[in-house]
Simulated assay, not measured.
Amino acid sequence: MLRTAALSLLLLLGGWAAASWLTYDFQAWTDEGARRLQVALHPVALSEPLLAQDSQGRSLALSALLGAPGHGPAPGSHAAAATIVDFFYTHCETLCLSLGSSMQQLQAALRADQQAGRDSGLRLLSISLDGARDDPAALQRYARQQRADAGFWQFVRLPQAEQQQRLLQQLGVVVVPDGRGDFEHNAALLVFDGAGRMRRVFDLAEQQLALDYARHLARQPRP
């Protein structure tokens, strides 16, 4: 009986240890939760140069848009002290509608900050999931539909499919073609610091938290 009890205790301890390891000491119970905790503990920097194209057809380094040291800002813009990023595609009629609405509200908050003399240098960046179809003309139309102010909010695609896929994998953005020309994808607000590192991932429902955290990052000196 003692042997059975000891074996049961060992199994219980083993299960507890495994659960603790898999959930980061019980802080995350889903793959997405684990991903977000991992990002918070270990900020993600872009591991290679990636070439983006904006709505004006200009080619520029994605790191420049994210304000990484050693890269100048995009033409006509200022270096970002922090950036809130989302992933979308222009013909999406589901999650992207909610993402667009959130980004519009964030833009309104940034404009209000600027008008009140509190411009922190925080900027917004929307990256297309469909670089093959979302050419500069499509991005420009979409920006107009969203009433985007280029001083606060920019739209880009990665024309090279291989670079787009590597970026999505590196940032943990899940994109699954549905076979009808659309995509299933996770919707979130990714916050990057002025060094171009992803520091946090927030749900759409946590829009205010994302904004507050990005404002906090924008006030910090660059590493």
Rank of each mutant, 00 (worst) to 15 (best):
L2A: 13
R3H: 09
L7R: 07
L9Y: 07
L9S: 09
L10F: 11
G14L: 05
G15K: 04
W21F: 09
Q27F: 02
Q27Y: 00
A28Y: 00
E32S: 12
G33K: 01
R35K: 11
R35M: 10
L37W: 09
Q38P: 03
H42T: 12
S47F: 08
D54W: 08
S55M: 11
R58W: 07
A61R: 14
L65W: 11
L65S: 04
L66E: 12
P69E: 06
G70N: 06
H71L: 10
A79H: 00
A81P: 00
A82D: 08
L95N: 13
L97T: 10
Q107V: 08
Q107E: 13
Q115H: 12
R118A: 15
R118I: 12
L122I: 08
R123N: 07
L125G: 01
G131A: 00
L139A: 00
Q145C: 02
Q146M: 12
G151W: 00
F152D: 01
L158V: 07
P159F: 05
P159G: 02
Q164G: 15
Q170C: 05
G172I: 07
P177I: 13
D178F: 11
G179N: 12
E184M: 10
H185S: 02
A188N: 09
L189R: 09
V191D: 11
A195Y: 04
E206F: 04
L209C: 03
L209I: 01
A214T: 11
R215F: 15
L217D: 04
Q220K: 00
